[in-house]
Design a protein around this nucleic acid. Sequence first.
DNA 1: AAAGGTATTTTGAATAGTCAAAATAAATGT
DNA 2: ACATTTATTTTGACTATTCAAAATACCTTT
Lengths: 220, 220
Amino acid sequence: MVTSTVENYLKHVLLLSEEADDLVSMGALAAALAVVPGTATTMVKALADGGLVEHQPRHGVRLTDEGRSVALNVLRKHRLVETFLVNVLKMDWAKVHQEAERLEHAVSDEVLDRLDALLGHPGTDPHGDPIPSRQGKLRSQVYATLATCATERRFRIVRVTDQSPEFLQFAEQNGLQPGTSLRVTERNLAAGLLTLRKPAGRPIALSLAAAGKILVEPEK
Amino acid sequence: MVTSTVENYLKHVLLLSEEADDLVSMGALAAALAVVPGTATTMVKALADGGLVEHQPRHGVRLTDEGRSVALNVLRKHRLVETFLVNVLKMDWAKVHQEAERLEHAVSDEVLDRLDALLGHPGTDPHGDPIPSRQGKLRSQVYATLATCATERRFRIVRVTDQSPEFLQFAEQNGLQPGTSLRVTERNLAAGLLTLRKPAGRPIALSLAAAGKILVEPEK
DNA sequence: AAAGGTATTTTGAATAGTCAAAATAAATGT
DNA sequence: ACATTTATTTTGACTATTCAAAATACCTTT
Ligand SMILES: [Mn+2]
Ligand SMILES: [Mn+2]
Ligand SMILES: [Mn+2]
Ligand SMILES: [Mn+2]
């Protein structure tokens, strides 16, 4: 049976397999789900029994086609719900991840379709995370980050990859959200620090670690 | 811990205690929750341990103040969610009960408040069921039904008490929804049948059992 | 190749919720 | 009052999910 626990496991395998090339390690999966490693092993074996993942003992997990399709559907629900909460209910973008974490398991496919239409079929959620299509296509483009992009050139923020309320709140306060255009004026590798400017406004200082979580693309 | 199972038990004790004077029987509770009676007994003892209900063995259950407040909050979520699904997402009023049955456990108090505001603080849901206030007041007025009201006088439908998709679909097809005004033209107790007319349109025949599920109030 | 360290798996036990079926209590009919 | 029916409770067992802790496998480093 596809319980919400199963949905969470599959979703996190999907998310982790975008970083980790191919196989997702038990340790990473357990950490993402906030369970002890043994629990992850047990569940993964059960999922493998159910044909939702492929388990290579001692190496890691991979989604099967069926598991991937379930995971994409959950991710689509998660991100559309976040978009609804921000765009329609005007909720703080730092709080919506937590809400969506529960709602993604309670929203039916029909409600999902209607939300999608109400929102105008958005391609990304408020954080810039791509929303899988109904058919299960997930656009996963590779972007530069503020930590790696050229200096003195103009870029636009396309995505903020860090769900933590603290980081999102900080980003919001400094206007660092998808759509914002800016340029990096200075980057000090030794100090692990960089400075950026928006067209108007005072310079903002950022650690390289933080900058690496902000994806950008060059402005035309 | 207040799991969604606990929420469901409490909500159903609340709903059943509106009919059954005071104590709710195990049989009725078990039936409402679609579990075997023994399961209800076990859960009710656990709820009593947790201070959420008072259990009088062999007689029935009653909510404590704490249990009642949890139940009212869940009911408020249920009915506001139904209202959202119908008014905003334009979903079929026959389907929303099922949806709300899951969503009521996933919606946070903050989302609830925002939904409430978005909807304009409605007093009833699409079926005419009263929505508990944020402070936990539940208006439970006594109405006449189409089975008991006077004939040849004009009434307005205020509530349809039957969540089953079949009945709701039937009611919708015949325009028997809250707000509709009509009069009973004929009532045949022996045959268990009655006929009613809306201002415009052909007469509608209804069983007394069905008519008893439609609550009305006299039009001014 | 042996020793350590790290990641993973196994094992045993716990919790929440459920059912089947047996036991018991209460209500009803004669 | 006694037997029957009905409602409730008890008992034992099962599933899903989790943790703690022990066992094992796989790497690194010497
Ligand atoms: Mn989740
Ligand atoms: Mn997001
Ligand atoms: Mn429910
Ligand atoms: Mn309703």
